[in-house]
Design a binder for these strands. Sequence first.
DNA 1: GTAGGGTTAG
Length: 457
Amino acid sequence: MTCRLSTRLMNICVASLCRARRLGMAELVVIDGIRMGCIPDVVTYNTLVSAYCRLVGVDEAYLVVHRMREMGLKPDVVTYNSLITGAARWRRLSCSLDLFEEMHQAGLQPDSWTYNNLLHCLFKSGYPDLAFRVLTAMESANLAPSSTTYNILINGLCKSGNAGSALALFRYLQRVGSPRGLVTYNTLIDGLCKCGRVGEARTLFRELAGSGFIPNAVTYTTMMKSYFRSGRFEEGLSMLDEIRREGSRFDAFAYCTVISALIKMGKMEEASDFLEEMHGQCGTLDTVCYNTHINLCFKQGKVDDALDLLNKVDEIDDYTVSILVDGLCKNNRLPDAYHLLKYMATMGSQSNLVPYNCFIQALCKQGKVESVDFAMTLFNKLEIKDSFTYTSLLRGLSKMGRFLEAFTVMVSALRQGVCLPRSVRRVVLAGLRSLRYKVHARKLRSEIVKAKFRLPD
DNA sequence: GTAGGGTTAG
């Protein structure tokens, strides 16, 4: 009895340390526990597996599974569910599927959590078709979809460009009286907003209140963001009063949304006030909060403050790098921006195109021959380019009157199906005509027409 | 031990 109780206490302690991201401490508690005769159980190890999956990586989590086996304990469904989700979290989908198979071979029956996790992972990794196969497998295993399953489905449908089907599923659930929660409403409202069906999203927002639900911070942040996205800043900000009136908690998500909108509106002082409030209200701030703060510093010209903030943030992401490169460029620190880009390249992180686009744009805006040459060299080295990369370079070349080079770049963009703004197309065409490159201008015109009728790949 | 909202270039 004493031993069972102490194991339970140890598990509570381990869970609490894992929540506080103090994994090393949690491990020490287990080691001390064993030394004092307290035997860890499956729950102890599952807590560690889940924390390693979330904070470190799936391979490290799997090492815990080995230790678990050494202690004579068999991993259970919960262990595998954590591993499957953890693998997907670290973008190792094939690892998730292998674990699903391994689970079968170990004689463990996947439960609805396993299927839900797998469904979520497949949608998130961009494999909606595979997700539907998992749904069929779930039905074959006689596991009825739960409200969580439907939420995952609605979210997955929205994020894979099928908001219409998501809405149809929602209306079906409504007809058959299947329970729908606030999460369902929030998910669908966001999905509709993000694919431009804002009117239907607002109808649903009104319906939500009529169904007896009270909108929460997620609902309001979603709605605010939809206004900001369409440039309706004042309408978005008017929701702030509503949030406060309803007594909803303002969390880090809401603060970041509002602060970023205020920055875009040029209202730096108000953004600073909200930022201060966020620091006071939200406790530990995550990478997104720091990204928002760093962005504000750059927009205020406080470059040193922005760089100092890097010492406070636990980890940086693609957004941080983009904000840094753009901020350095816009504050005339192009050499520093370039060093950062080179550093990122040595770290093998060239998949993020945004910082390259920012840098190429800054070079082109300088209007110097050597800067545009450098932009051109960098452009040619990039394996992936998008509409923004082409647009920046074309504007830079046009500014310098280098229309023959612009012609070559633009033809290559059009042939690859890259959309270019009408203003850029006009500038290059007009430039070619003004320099009497009539044949090139005609050729470009015909490429533009052809591109209009080319089907996407 | 599952599901929803936030940050970057224009």
